[in-house]
Amino acid sequence: MSQSVITVIGKDRVGIVYDVAKLLAANQINIVNISQQLMNDFFTMVILVDTSKCSKSPTELADLFSQESEKLALQIRIQHEDIFNAMHRI
């Protein structure tokens, strides 16, 4: 299993979870765990995903999420689990 962490931040609106889940499903990315929270008017979500069935490279995924971020008025970022853990290690 190849796992990555996706973070989503944006102004709260109806359909954010749907839009992100649809994007993941279209790219054969499976949600392993998900956490979401509303902070005032801002929606935040952290998703642990399995990318092993996705045909896109990590660079292609990052580019795709960057493009979709603009369309959806969200900030969507992906990092491999090892990089995420290394950056957040105390």
Rank of each mutant, 00 (worst) to 15 (best):
V5I: 15
H80K: 04
G10F: 08
N27C: 08
E81W: 10
L24K: 07
H80D: 02
I29D: 00
K71Y: 03
D41I: 14
S66D: 11
V14H: 12
K11F: 08
G15L: 07
H88C: 09
V8F: 04
M39V: 13
I90F: 14
N30Q: 11
D41S: 07
I6Q: 06
A86G: 06
P58K: 08
Q3M: 07
E70P: 00
M45V: 04
A86M: 14
K71P: 04
Q75Y: 04
R13L: 13
M1D: 06
S55T: 10
M1W: 04
N85W: 03
T7N: 03
I76E: 01
L64I: 06
L38R: 14
L38G: 03
M1T: 11
L64V: 11
E81A: 12
I29M: 12
M39T: 07
Y18I: 02
Q79K: 12
S35Q: 14
M45L: 07
F43W: 00
I90Q: 11
V14R: 09
I76S: 04
E60Q: 13
T7A: 03
K11Y: 09
P58V: 07
T7S: 01
K71E: 04
F42N: 08
E70Q: 05
L64D: 04
A26W: 07
L24I: 09
L72H: 02
I9N: 08
V8K: 01
A62K: 13
N85A: 10
R89W: 09
V20I: 08
I78R: 01
